[in-house]
Computed example of a mutant assay.
Amino acid sequence: MSSLAAPAGAAPDAAAVTRVPAVDTSTLTAQARAVLATAPVVTVAADVQFALDVPAVTVVKDPPPPPPPPKPKPKPEVVAPTPRAAAASRSAQRAPVAAAAAQPTPEAPAAEPVGAPAPASANGNAIVEIASRYVGVPYLWGGTTPSGFDCSGYTSYVFAQVGIKLPRTSSAQRNVGTVVPRSQAQPGDLIWTPGHIAIYAGGNTQVDAPRPGKSIQIREIWQSNPTFIRVS
């Protein structure tokens, strides 16, 4: 058998063609000869084209591996306090309490002092001296005791200390005793104006319970035209 022929239309390349050695058919057996004699002749057109049916290949990428789980936070190491440290901790806890206990307890504000010396203009008058003892007592509507006085309750209480009983209201006290001119007024006389009554302390001063929110005080005579009344 001769060497393989190059495809039609292609120039043979002497370097690329591999020579196949000839086959000696003389040594074939009779059975082989018979097979060759009866074998069909296969012919292939010179322009035949071969095609391979290659299925489409889809490349599937593996999903990325899941992220590693977070590392657990290390548990804080609990160190048992030594007896000395525990004692120091207890001492630190007791220190603020001890310091607070050591501080002096704030005292309550002192009450307003009650009482004042009689003014020099009183000339030793007993009524003015008694009246001065209650300077600082708060005004109290309807009050008739040292816990609280209104104007007529105050004058009634003071005069009662020397054995003189006065009516309860200022309007009624206006009608007791004798009215005297201001130039002849003496310490211990009453000073009356509509709705108010006071005790004359000499000079241009008086002792009275002014009004709610105030206290008994010695002050200048503020009334423009007061009536002076002497009670004996």
Rank of each mutant, 00 (worst) to 15 (best):
A198T: 06
G202E: 06
T25K: 13
S156H: 09
A5I: 08
V176L: 03
S91M: 10
G188R: 01
R19K: 11
P68H: 06
T43C: 08
S121A: 15
A34W: 06
G177R: 11
L52Y: 01
Q173D: 01
L140W: 13
R133C: 09
P81V: 02
P187C: 10
I191W: 04
A32C: 04
A32F: 05
T38A: 15
P117V: 08
L28D: 09
I218S: 02
P7K: 13
V158P: 04
L52M: 03
P106Q: 01
W192N: 11
V48H: 09
S132K: 02
G148E: 07
P66H: 01
Y154Q: 05
D53S: 15
G203T: 03
V59C: 02
A5T: 12
A88V: 07
R90G: 14
A98D: 15
V137N: 10
R90T: 12
F50N: 04
G9C: 06
I197A: 10
V44A: 14
P210W: 02
V60P: 06
A120F: 01
P109W: 10
L28G: 04
D62W: 05
A126Q: 14
A110R: 15
S121T: 15
E107N: 12
P64F: 03
V48N: 07
G124V: 02
R182C: 00
Q223S: 07
R90K: 13
I216M: 10
I229D: 00
G136L: 00
P83K: 15
P65V: 03
I216C: 08
P226N: 05
V17Y: 10
A111Q: 11
A56E: 13
A32V: 05
M1C: 12
A102K: 11
P67C: 01
A86E: 07
A201Y: 10
D24W: 00
W192Q: 12
R94D: 13
K71Y: 03
C151N: 13
W192F: 13
P138Y: 03
E129L: 09
P55E: 04
A108I: 05
P187K: 12
L36T: 01
Q186A: 06
R19D: 06
D62F: 05
G163M: 15
A10K: 15
I229R: 03
P181W: 02
L52K: 06
A14V: 05
S91C: 08
A34D: 14
R182W: 03
P21E: 15
R230W: 06
R168K: 11
P74R: 02
A118S: 01
A126W: 06
G115L: 11
V78W: 00
P64T: 04
T145V: 04
A101K: 15
A85Y: 02
V59K: 00
N225H: 11
P212Y: 06
T193F: 07
